[in-house]
Design a protein around this nucleic acid. Structure first.
Lengths: 343, 343
DNA sequence: GTTAGCACTCTATCAGTTCGAGTGCTAAGA
DNA sequence: TCTTAGCACTCGAACTGATAGAGTGCTAAC
């Protein structure tokens, strides 16, 4: 159990360390407004806080820095929210000023602005494209042996793949195929597309198209791998600005993990509601043990659509980021919903 | 003028420094196979080479490292080509093993493999999409106020933009518009598209569509900004692997320059034929004064289509990279031509 | 022209020193 | 009993020689 004074000292210590990146000493704390005790008393309290595991020393006669437990307590109990400054709001809303109609573009730009405002790295996860609904399918022949398949979804997302076709295929067969596909597959989600393709259209295609086999096989294969590149980064290089990261080896590991898309699920707790903070080793990845990640989800309509994450050092400005993400999440939900309610 | 022996010593010095990243001393050189003189003689020669500006010292009693002029001479006169090892070839050709049909995908994967093989950063510039020819235009309505415009080019590239339409627009008007656009604009290059759109179709649209004005305006605006994202990177983080780069500030500048697309024309000498090597300050950008860039162009058919660049430290393995790029350029030209001759 | 030998220079490293920031403890004071 | 002044102590950072070693340039002999 911590006394009032201990709580105050813990808060001020963490705040100061977040700001200065230097271990905080008792004399320094004694000078802070709001603290009335002498440095000796503070020393006793610091020793107590260290004993309880909230603070640490870097060496025997150094000042204190927050431990992981200290950050956790600070975040859970001592964080006083901070209204988002007007100029940050202006910059964030500039995304919607220009008439940008594409969800992807809006998310991409937001990522950039967030990283600029915070000096940390931002990761924005867009809506899962596999949930989108097929609006139209078409096939455009390019050359005797090649064609491109195009899928338009209700969100305006366009997927396209080049695939090979029998070189001597009758153009009318392609037309037939497109008609069958559209007749049967409009309204299906990209997620179900592959399964439904076989169930719904194979028999029909067999009836109407002479050499359906090869055509169907390459078309199906083209749709097989859904490119899930709905992850957008902002300020990947901001890690290099943080004094906390000086070891090039560690930086490389960290950037590597973020670069590779496959670790996204481990970085972002997908499906989690509301705002989440992961400090240091609370992160799933070993490469991120010196980082904190703050995530928040946003929605379009009633459905959760994506997440926003800010990755920074453990010594991150939690207060500012929490308010900022809170605002952005609400704003993005509102604007994207508006964009889509139009339909 | 340099004597035979001086040339030999220069070559061995550069080779050794490229390999070890340490200043090279006279004793070390004396032990090398092929060098018969004593270290004292070598010292005299080194002094001469330094006097002529080919070598430098890091401090008065240090070994020698190549100067920019030294690298330049080495690259121009002392480089003996090296056959590309079979295992590199196997890895490079794996791009074409899987049935990947899209130019973009092939280039992207090549960038990845090149960076893996070299441990440097690779930048691949794809064909200029603005030269591509329109194969088909279509407009898919998404909701009463929104539609997506899709342009398919002869290369299989698909451009798409969401744009707004008058909410109460008659669907048949869109159909008419698409017909007019296709009738008039197929065969036009993306480069000319914007100009021709106005010239060729505006009058016709006016005749046939009631409220052509707003529709045409937003459609035209949607096509305005051609996303020129035909640049692919491999191994951006490889810079962090090079011992030559230890200053985080410099690394940041360098990565920044590469990250920002707008500097590409300065990094890659566009339009240059064949293989180009830029060493240190020969690069246009100040941030790259410690780098060397080796570029090569590749073609599809008779037309120059793009460039490949490898960015590394000045102390780059020129011999290996030159052979490798030479091979990749030829291979890529051949395979992409084959892919497109199909048409 | 080449090379052995030697004095010289500079770096890297290690031990020793000092300085200052900060701690923990003790004892006196409120 | 809690607070605080005072003091001894610890440790890192920064500086100082001292030393070893790598490498150079020069000279004189071959």
């Amino acid at each position: 159990m911590l006394t009032e004074r201990q709580l105050l000292i813990l808060k001020v210590t963490v705040d100061d360390y977040i700001q200065s990146a230097q271990p905080v000493g008792s004399n320094q704390l004694a000078k802070k407004p709001g603290i009335t005790s002498s440095s000796a008393t503070i020393r006793n309290e610091l020793a107590e806080l260290e004993g309880q595991g909230y603070l640490e020393k870097t060496h025997t006669s150094s000042g204190r820095i927050p431990s992981q437990k200290g950050y956790r307590y600070y975040v859970d109990h001592l964080l006083t929210p901070n209204p988002v400054p007007q100029q940050d709001i202006v910059q964030l809303r500039s995304v919607f000023e220009e008439k940008v109609n594409e969800t992807e573009e809006i998310i991409k730009r937001s990522a950039g602005i967030l990283s600029e405002l915070t000096n940390y790295t931002s990761i924005l996860l867009g809506p899962d494209i596999r949930k989108h609904i097929v609006k139209k399918l078409s096939i455009v022949p390019l050359s005797p042996g090649m064609a491109v398949a195009i899928i338009v979804t209700d969100s305006g997302h366009v997927e396209n793949r080049v695939f090979s076709i029998p070189p001597d295929l009758d153009p009318s067969d392609i037309e037939k195929m497109v008609n069958i596909l559209n007749e049967r597959l409009i309204g299906v989600s990209l997620y179900d597309l592959h399964k439904r393709l076989e169930q719904e259209t194979l028999a029909l295609l067999r009836q109407h198209i002479e050499r359906y086999g090869e055509l169907f096989r390459t078309f199906k294969q083209a749709l097989l791998l859904p490119r899930a590149d709905n992850v957008y980064y902002g300020g990947k290089l901001n890690i290099l600005k943080q004094p906390d990261f000086h070891d090039i080896q560690k930086i490389r590991e960290l950037m590597n993990v973020m670069e590779e898309g496959k670790h996204i699920p481990e970085i972002l707790p997908i499906g989690a509601q509301g705002l989440q903070i992961r400090i240091g080793s609370e992160n799933a990845l070993a490469a991120m043990e010196d980082c904190s990640v703050i995530t928040v989800s946003y929605d379009i309509g009633d459905e959760q659509m994506g997440s926003i994450a800010i990755v920074g050092p453990k010594r991150m400005d939690y207060r500012r980021i929490v308010s900022l993400l809170d605002y952005v999440s609400g704003d993005l939900s509102k604007e994207l919903t508006r964009l889509f309610q139009g339909k």
